[in-house]
Simulated assay, not measured.
Amino acid sequence: MYKLIALDMDGTLLRGDGSISERTKSAIKEARKQGVKVVLASGRPLEGLERYLEELELTTPEDYALSYNGAVIKNVGTRETICSQLISGKDVQDVYAISQQIGVNTHAFSTELGLISPKVSHYTAHERDINGISLTLIDYNELSADHPIVKVMMVDEPEILSPGVEQIPAEYYERFTVVRSAPFFLEILNKNSNKGNGVSMLADYLGIKPEEVICVGDAGNDVHMLEYAGLSVAMGNAFDEIKAIADYVTHTNEDDGVAHVIEKFILS
């Protein structure tokens, strides 16, 4: 019996217009009635999840969410932080230096200042707007070396970002968790931060075994949690490499893929 289902947001739970279908909402509600934990696992900050948590009624002290690709795990009802794994101002400065060399834009998330960037690029404005958060313009060199940072991102048009990614020094992949969450987003986090570790730590906290966990995703930042899950599910619209590692491929995000998973593996 499955006791926890972790759902990626963009490209998975959400349709292209950012909405959640009524069928999916009904399936989630029925799963919760059976005692299954439904956990949103996203690269977004918690602020960017709140409207969906409220829409799905996942707002009690029994509900949890993974934000920033698992770097921060919180109890939604009490706001207690279950786990927080950060990087530093020095890390951001180093990543920014590389980004300048390869010609891509960046932004970062500070625990104290929120979304920060030296400039308002197209995808930084996109990050700000989809999450409904403010943006603070700042020279990264003004940050103290130990300034607490959740993650730093390289953000740009895919045709600019992709060749840029190929120029990132190999040691950065040893030093950080580096994941491609969208064609225009490359996320750089604490080496121990990823959705797989996040789901694992939450499951341990709740006394749930890996084989009792379903994880559903579509992109590169979902790989770790699919590798962890007892049942790994790729969306019909997922990247080919995600489908290749999944136990099951469901329908697309436009065709109630999440609802199909819940109905097939939990409600039946």
Rank of each mutant, 00 (worst) to 15 (best):
64 Y>I: 07
66 L>N: 04
66 L>S: 04
71 A>G: 08
72 V>N: 08
73 I>F: 06
74 K>D: 09
75 N>P: 06
75 N>Q: 03
77 G>M: 06
77 G>C: 09
77 G>K: 07
81 T>V: 15
82 I>E: 12
88 S>Q: 06
89 G>I: 03
91 D>R: 00
95 V>P: 09
98 I>C: 10
100 Q>N: 14
105 N>E: 14
105 N>I: 00
106 T>N: 02
106 T>R: 00
110 S>K: 00
111 T>H: 01
113 L>T: 01
119 K>E: 15
124 T>M: 02
129 D>E: 15
131 N>K: 01
136 T>K: 15
139 D>L: 03
139 D>I: 02
140 Y>D: 01
143 L>A: 08
145 A>Y: 12
145 A>F: 13
146 D>H: 09
147 H>C: 08
155 V>R: 00
157 E>D: 15
157 E>S: 08
159 E>K: 12
160 I>Q: 13
162 S>R: 13
163 P>Y: 09
163 P>Q: 11
165 V>E: 15
165 V>R: 14
165 V>S: 10
167 Q>F: 01
168 I>H: 06
168 I>N: 09
174 E>S: 15
177 T>L: 07
179 V>A: 13
180 R>V: 12
181 S>E: 03
185 F>A: 04
189 L>Y: 04
194 N>G: 08
195 K>M: 10
195 K>A: 11
197 N>W: 08
199 V>P: 04
203 A>M: 12
209 K>C: 11
209 K>M: 13
